[in-house]
Structures are given as structure tokens and as C-alpha cells.
Amino acid sequence: MVNSLGFDRAPGETRVVVAMSGGVDSSVVAGLLAREGYEVIGVTLQLYDHGEATFRKGSCCAGQDIHDARRVSAALGIPHYVLDYEERFRKAVIEPFAESYALGETPIPCVSCNQSVKFVDLMEVAKDLGADCLATGHYVRSRIVDGKRQLLRPLDGDKDQTYFLFATTAGQLDYLRFPLGNMTKDETRALAREMGLTIAEKSDSQDICFVPKGSYSDVIKKLMPEAEVPGDIVDQHGKVLGRHKGIIHYTVGQRRGLGIASGEPLYVLKLDARTQQVVVGPKSALSTHTVRLRDINWLGPKPLVEMVAGNGMALEAKVRSTRAPQEAVIFVRDGEVYVTLIAGEAGIAPGQACVLYSDDSEDAQVLGGGFIAEAVPAAMVA
């Protein structure tokens, strides 16, 4: 008989480490598995300690959240460990985030955190503890097809977190379990109330948990004071329209705060770290159809080059965590991987993720994805 986590043994003979952030989702995962009779061990990583950020609504893995994870574990009667990973988190996530931003990119630290600290370091901790698997509170699903575990979109499309997990490797997927994949957030909160957990109404964590007051530039200036370099604000033809205090204060697609008088609304089109220029233009110039990807992680049933041979392969792609996937085509040219978005997207910036799906169904498989290296001009892919 196979248990709910896919092991051919009784739950009591299966040891599970649950990554507990102190939030509702991971707490319910620990409660569900403990209730089913698994040998559950809760582990919380202390990732940062940045003053106000540790008490800000929507933070995670710091301050009050660690106390919440401890209280939940005590209520459930499971062992709980807190590991100090601040130094590792700073080097693997915060510093690369600042460096990427200083280069004019729009990085996604949640992906980096999953790639390094959570699905590498924490996984090693789980294995050292003799766990059969590592369970998390992510809203994604996985299943085994033809002997290979696939990553799938969750039942609750509004909570779909596959965008942040596209870089999960096949080997990591084999060890991970996602008990909330077939549940909605409302059902999760209802279970937290049923279990009598004090965090049942706690707010969800925010994407960039370590940024106090949501000010990216403050974090970057603290880590890289030299990154705040003044420069010119120019139009698409290079005409100087004004000055800025540093490209770290801007993002592609931004309209407010440019400080330029113009007859039409102007938007940030590009950030050039080499010249320290902020390039602005009309909203129509933000539209992009094709992107070039780097650092590809492929989870498809066959190698990428086989599946996209010839004229490429139709699939669905997502370049915003809050948007639904859209029709797209992936192709390889001169060794580089490109994705053409049929409907296009506005304000795409280097550093963002492009996540690829098999189709537009609720049961769609995550085929992988990559980080956007550049938005490609139409003439280059015609």
C-alpha cells in the first residue's frame, strides 16, 4: 500500500522534514502530515534580521515568524529546529539581488532562494536528518509519469506558485512533496482553524521578504553604495531629457517619479548600466513579443533540443507571476533559446523569469523556464 506521500510503507515508518516559515501554509502541511501519522520534523531557517522587516506584515523566516513556527510545532507535538542561515542567505540571495538590480535588471529573489537555500541547503539538512522527503507549503503539484516526476500547476490557480519554482531540478523534484497542491487557500485556512493554530488568519508572505518598507534601493545602497551613480534620462534617440540619481531607483515600465515635463506620458523602456542612462519613451514602445533566455532549466519529457527541433514548439509561457500563461512558441537559434509570446507583453525586463507550460489546462505540466536575458527587437527574429 502506497501512503499519501508516495512511499510503499506506513506513514509512521516515513520521516518527513517540513520547511516551516511560520506562515499558514507550511504550518498546515506540518499539521496534516502529523495527523496522518507521519514522523514529522519541523525546520525553520532564520534567513535575515533587518530591523523593521522582521516585524513587517508579510515577512517570513525572521523575527515573529520563527516564534510562530515554534508555537505551531509545540501545539502539534512535533520536534522543531531553527537553523541560522543568515550568512548563506545574504551571499546566495541578497547580494546577487543587489548586484542584478545595479545592472539594470529586475531580479526575482524568491526563485534564487528556492534554487539555493531552500532546495539545496535545506534539502541536505533533511537528508542528514534521515528524512524520506522534504515537504513544503507551496501551491504546486507533482506526479510520476513513466517513472519521471513532473511539476504541475495547482488546483487553486489564484495561488499558483509554479512561477517561483521553475528552476527546481528533476533530482530535487524527486525528493520534494507539496501536500497543498490539491487544496485552495480558503481550505488551508479552514484546516488551520480546525487544528486550533494561532496563525490561521496570518497574512501571506510577500515576494521580497527582506526589503524593509518595500524600498529596493535602500537595500542596494546599503550593500553597494557605489551603485547609486547619477546619469542622463534620454529618449529613444539619445536626446537628453533630464538627470537621475541612479538607475537603481527605476524599473522598466515605470511612469511615476521621472521628473520630466512632456506632452505625453513617458515610461522607462530600458536601464543601461554601462552608460548609466535611463531610456524613456511612449507606452507603445514597452511592447515585447520575443525574449532570449539564459540559465534554462528544462523539465520536459525529452531534451529541449529534441522537442523544439525545426520550427520550434508551441506551448504556454508566463513572464509575470500574477498573469495567466499565454500562447507562445519556443525555438533555438545559433545555440540561443528564444520564446515568442503570441499576444506580446508590456514592460519585460532582463532578470525576470519566463516559465514554460505544456498547455493552458489546470493540469498543465511545468516544462521549465529560464531568466530573460533581453527583449529582442522584432527585426532580429523576423
Rank of each mutant, 00 (worst) to 15 (best):
L5N: 07
G6C: 05
F7E: 10
A10K: 08
G12E: 12
T14Q: 03
R15M: 05
M20A: 09
G22V: 08
G22W: 05
V24A: 02
V24S: 03
S26Q: 07
V28M: 02
V29L: 11
V29Q: 10
L32N: 11
R35P: 00
E36H: 04
G42I: 09
L45V: 03
G51Y: 13
A53V: 07
T54D: 10
R56I: 10
K57V: 14
A62G: 12
Q64M: 05
Q64C: 07
D65F: 14
V82F: 00
L83K: 15
R90N: 14
E95H: 13
P96C: 10
A98I: 08
E99F: 00
L103S: 14
V111I: 15
V111P: 07
S112F: 07
S112R: 09
N114E: 07
D121S: 08
D121N: 01
L122Q: 06
V125S: 15
L129E: 02
L129F: 14
G130I: 05
Y139R: 09
R141V: 01
I144D: 09
I144R: 15
G147Q: 13
R149N: 09
L152G: 03
P154A: 00
L155H: 04
G157K: 08
G157W: 14
K159R: 12
T162G: 15
L165G: 03
L165K: 01
F166A: 13
T168R: 03
T169Q: 01
G171C: 06
Q172G: 02
L176A: 01
R177N: 05
G181E: 05
N182A: 15
M183W: 14
M183Y: 03
T184R: 02
E187L: 06
A190C: 06
A192M: 10
M195F: 15
G196M: 15
A200E: 07
S205G: 14
I208G: 10
V211T: 09
P212K: 08
V219R: 08
K222W: 07
M224E: 12
P225R: 04
E228Q: 12
P230V: 04
G231S: 13
G231V: 04
G231R: 01
D235H: 06
H237F: 15
V240Y: 09
R243W: 12
H249I: 00
T251L: 14
T251I: 11
V252R: 04
G253R: 01
G253K: 14
R255Q: 15
R255V: 00
R255W: 00
R255D: 15
G257Q: 06
G259C: 11
I260F: 01
A261G: 04
S262N: 04
G263Q: 11
E264H: 13
L266H: 01
L271F: 14
G281W: 01
L286M: 07
L286D: 02
L286W: 02
S287P: 02
T288C: 08
I296R: 09
I296T: 02
L299M: 11
R320H: 14
T322I: 10
R323K: 15
A324R: 13
E327H: 10
I330F: 01
G335M: 05
Q352K: 11
C354V: 11
C354I: 07
D359G: 05
D359H: 08
S361L: 07
S361V: 10
A364C: 10
Q365E: 06
V366C: 05
G368K: 04
E374W: 00
E374K: 04
A375G: 06
P377E: 09
V381E: 01
